[in-house]
Amino acid sequence: MILTVTPNPALDKVYWVDRLNTEIETPMTRATRSLGWAGGKGINISTFLAHMGLETVAMGFIAGHTGRVIENRVREAGITTSFVWTEGETRTNIAIIEKGREERPIAISELGPHVPEMALRQFLQSYTRLVRRARWVVLGGSLPPGIPSNFYRELLKIAHQHKIKTVVNAAGDALAEALKEQPYLVKPDTRERREICGEPVESDEQIIPVSRRLVSAMGVGAVVVSHRVTSDILITPQEIWDFEAHGVQLVNLVGSEDALLAGMVYQLEKGHSLLDAVEFGMAAGTASAESVEQVCCDPELVRKAREKIRRVRLA
């Protein structure tokens, strides 16, 4: 079983517009299409894994009407739920994709509801129980108000006590804390800020030394960093590889990074190498970016997208 944790789930709404009208006199913009999904990193990853036939449990904090919508949609996707209910209302995150600017969607994310101590305690009880059944634990996304920055670190500690392989996709203090527990695989979330633990990662020249320090000095198993929209760099203690997807027709980038990690976890769970896992993950991410779906779960489209992936060893 693969256990995913999404502390701050969201109902993700995506609007496609021909042109985002920002004129003060007529600020109305009509969407040509809109879609909504139960989202958040862990949930997106569980969605892919469940569609690919793997058993997966989604954990996190949900609240209110939006929380109920998310719970229902997650279960409909064939995912087992173990959410902890809390006060308030789960987030709704919005992305606006303007025609011709598909590579730069406008994203607005809410903070999320405050998680009281009682709900946190309940979560830790459930997590400690469920982690014993897991083969992989995937932790992803922002932390809602009320959750301490060492949350992921504590969850990793519990998972590592049971020798479970762990994956972290986070940013800021949550990531910095998590790194201290030496996860197996890390994908820093650099969408909001092009930095990892306070160090800028604008270019390949910056990404490689910063990521190398994570694997050499901090003991992380492997790091994957996205750059240039359709490229990812894999850094392990032994090797550095650059992966690039060629000829991508961008439709919806939202969720494609999660599809990348989901594809990687799927392939690793099936016993494939890390290199194969990144290649398959990039194919899943590419297939997602080329479809309206947040996470493309069509194995045939993923297979076709794999033909677009090239890899080059950098070191």
Binding site: T80, T81, R129
Partner: peptide
Amino acid sequence: TRDLTSVDPDTTVRELIYILDKS
């Protein structure tokens, strides 16, 4: 229903009421 909402036996009555109320 694929849901694992459950409690430990040492969960307090107050916590249980919170869980039932919110869920």
